[in-house]
Design a protein around this nucleic acid. Sequence first.
DNA 1: GGTCCGACCTGGCAGC
DNA 2: TGCTGCCAGGTCGGAC
Length: 273
Amino acid sequence: MPELPEVETIVRQLRTNIIRLKIRQIEILRTAQWKDPEMAVRILTGNQFMDVRRRAKFILFDLADGHRLIIHLRMTGKLIWSAPPYAQDKFTRTIFHFEDGNQMLFNDTRALGRLEVLAPDQYSKSLEQLGIEPLSDDFNRIALQNLLSKSKLEIKDFLLDQKKIAGIGNIYASEILFRSRIHPKKTANSLTSYEVKNLFRAIPEVLSEAVSRMGTTLGSSISDYRTVYNTDGDFQLFLRVYDREGEACCTCGHPIVRIVQKTRSSYFCEKCQ
DNA sequence: GGTCCGACCTGGCAGC
DNA sequence: TGCTGCCAGGTCGGAC
């Protein structure tokens, strides 16, 4: 599941490949995932990628004529860099053919990912509504405290709310709360100043470590996250609670517990948190 | 405005 | 062996 660290890894790897590369052809194999597939073909064909950036879990491509391509990978989306022989499979939904003969494949097993081309001055509601970037200078303790104090959400749901802090998903929310020693069902506005201090430290700590290990690949199925070069991330080796139900807590030895909050699994240690 | 909840989507797996 | 139903979870839109 691509969250901030996985998307950041993908963006960094793409940046070394696609800057100033000209798109020879775009082949849309599943139109439903594009907001306007006809416009996408018209704008992208012959255009040139000038930069690629990340905002939360969105990948933003700046094009030479001022348009922007926005991709959200959702659950199972992948961007795979492919030289001949091409790595296309039955889950390839869009192929970007470049003039140098390479391809960028958008693969998506569950087909939940979304792609959109924005005009130079076009407003994107999805992007505008996003909250603070947790790895930016805007993320400070006062801003976090203000957001927490105004919310009655359970802290796990608070961390998943992209309008508050943007980029955290289900895996890293559990890891962040474990390191902060906060129970996932505790309400956001009831956190003590000590817990807020721990949370403020743990959020960038967990996300930065995961970025340095190129994200988390949980299993070997075709749905699991891969880097642009179709390799696994490494952070799954360093997860302390997520997907470890019944295993001993690395701090106290108590078994890790799994509960369901709003249909999402939360993992935590009942003794430490 | 904040929160809640179902829908979208499909491979994998358990149960029969 | 084959079928059915559930589960995984990020985002969106509608309801409250």
